[in-house]
Amino acid sequence: MPLLEVQNISFGYGHHTPFEVQAVKDISFAIEKGECVAVIGHTGSGKSTLMQMLNGLLKPESGQVLLNGENIYQNKKTAAKARFQVGLCFQYPEYQLFAETCAEDIAFGPKNMGLSPEEIRKRVLLASEIVGLPADKLDVSPFDLSGGQKRRCAIAGVIAMQPEILILDEPTAGLDPAGREEILSMIGRYRKDRGATVLIVTHSMETAAAIADRILVMNGGRLVLSGSPEEIFSESEALLEMGLDIPSFARIILALRSRGVELPSAYTLKDAARVLSDGLRGGGRL
């Protein structure tokens, strides 16, 4: 049984107004335990709406969301519980920091779960360790942190709820290259050490290529493509048409192929370098 299963969900905004939008149209997919899935689509493709339906915030107008086989919208109680089971970290989460100290902010979720003070303390320490927030920052106001630290503190607030699945919306948006790298390797560590299930919502193909096992592509509220990164990036034309990009490494390989160079596909730096240097070594035999 998949950890999270989405069956034919739909949702629209502004019904009966001239601005009616059908944000999500009849989407189905499943996520297995331990998987890292990336949902890709440009702004307005329905990603954010989809995300909120996965954790009990937004009831689909039709269709079901099953967590461990149970419909999370059965009743108010299950929907409320789903918020802790499916940890949802919004875009620019640092804009939601509010408490006097980082520790209190990270503890907000666990407190709302009604955990004991010792358990909360334990979770705050663990979460801040996972995101790499220095321990001496825990008693500092979150507003005094640097941009990258604020982001990590906010993510820790979701991780501290120890959700069964962690959903991150554009976790690297607005960060500089070093900050981006830190967040991505943090997510990688979190998965490796804890066998965690992660869903990343992004419009960056580079991010998706770097960490996802599987990619779902959304366009106009529909799920239009789904598969391994390799399968997805082979559909480069379709992606470009949707206003999306393909990783630049994949683009170079594709361009070489169109010039008649026979190369296997690759989309990460390491693979692309290997494929290209192999291509040169084997070049003489052609």
Partner: peptide, 27 residues
């Protein structure tokens, strides 16, 4: 990214030229 790839190629022993920035130059 193009320069990164060029550098990775150099590191794997390919005599790839320096200072390649645009994809076209790379090709």
């Amino acid at each position: 990214d193009t320069a990164k790839l060029g550098k990775a190629l150099q590191e794997s022993g390919v005599p790839f030229p320096d200072g390649i920035l645009s994809p076209d130059e790379f090709l």
